[in-house]
């Protein structure tokens, strides 16, 4: 037995390219039953929102902008959850034991997950727009009015950007908390609890009301949905994004790189 030839490790072999990792991460989002339905829920939620608008909105009020807004609200929940699960399932389902041994560069895996989530987010929003456009045509026909196309291309892009930023908030919570339930709860706290607290503060304290747009990311990203931000509003997205997105994500990625995978 001691006569066996020594085994050498080939260090010149090509590593795993990022493009391949992105493909793998995209596939992981679809190849479980829950993941598949979560993806399908993008289209389902968009369709339900569209039908609800056709049923409940006044025929005269129908416009593409209304549909885009109506679809955007549920989308702001579904997309971050997709981003959260793509990260946290490696820990909650413990698949990280395989993922991080096949690719021992965690930064590449995290980058691939972020890119895959952004691809899904943009594609999901485009699908939602298409459904909304069909709803606008169909709804207007039912109401007997001409379809109104009142949303500019720029605004359509900023709405996608707003959703991608929301998705990145989910991603950040994923790398920070690394637990599916915890990160999803964290996202609801971020998007429902924190705005009311900050809103109350702004209501009761004058000095905070002036400060709020600069530090409240939820608040700062609202103009993205509504016609596009002004120069100052972009700056506010920048400063509040630094606080809520850039700094926590940097810390979360650092924690992922350092943590023990069990």
């Amino acid at each position: 037995m001691s006569t066996a030839a020594p085994i050498t490790i080939d260090t010149a072999r090509p590593g795993v390219p990022l493009g391949r990792l992105i493909k793998v991460e995209l596939r992981k989002m679809f190849n479980t039953r829950s993941g598949f339905w979560l993806m399908l829920s993008i289209a389902i939620v968009a369709a339900i929102a569209t039908v609800a608008i056709i049923i409940f909105a006044d025929g005269d009020d129908l416009s593409f902008g209304l549909f885009a807004q109506g679809i955007g609200i549920p989308m702001a929940i579904v997309l971050p959850v997709i981003a959260i699960l793509s990260v946290t399932s490696e820990w909650s389902q413990r698949t990280g034991l395989i993922t991080f041994t096949l690719v021992p560069h965690r930064g590449s895996i995290i980058a691939a997950k972020a890119i895959a989530a952004i691809i899904v987010g943009i594609a999901g929003m485009l699908i939602a727009y298409a459904i909304g456009a069909l709803g606008n045509i169909g709804g207007s026909a039912i109401a007997g009015v001409d379809p109104v196309w009142d949303t500019s291309l720029v605004n359509l892009v900023t709405i996608i950007l707003a959703n991608v930023l929301g998705l990145l908030i989910g991603f950040t919570l994923g790398v920070l908390i690394r637990n599916s339930a915890g990160a999803i709860v964290g996202y609801f706290v971020y998007s429902f609890v924190i705005p009311s607290i900050l809103g109350f503060l702004a209501f009761s304290q004058d000095w905070f009301e002036k400060l709020q747009p600069w530090i409240d990311f939820n608040d700062a990203t609202l103009p993205l949905f509504d016609g596009g931000p002004s120069g100052e509003e972009w700056a506010q997205i920048g400063t509040s994004g630094l606080i809520w997105l850039v700094i926590p994500m940097t810390f979360g990625i650092w924690a992922v790189l350092k943590s023990e995978v069990k």
Partner: peptide
């Protein structure tokens, strides 16, 4: 591993096979 630190092995799955916990699989896959 043969004188190399694991993270420095390119495409390690093709050079070293690892099974750390058979239960650590996504239950839904």
């Amino acid at each position: 591993v043969s004188g190399v630190n694991y993270p420095d092995i390119p495409n390690p799955g093709t050079q070293i096979g690892v099974l750390l916990d058979a239960s650590a699989q996504h239950a839904g896959r």
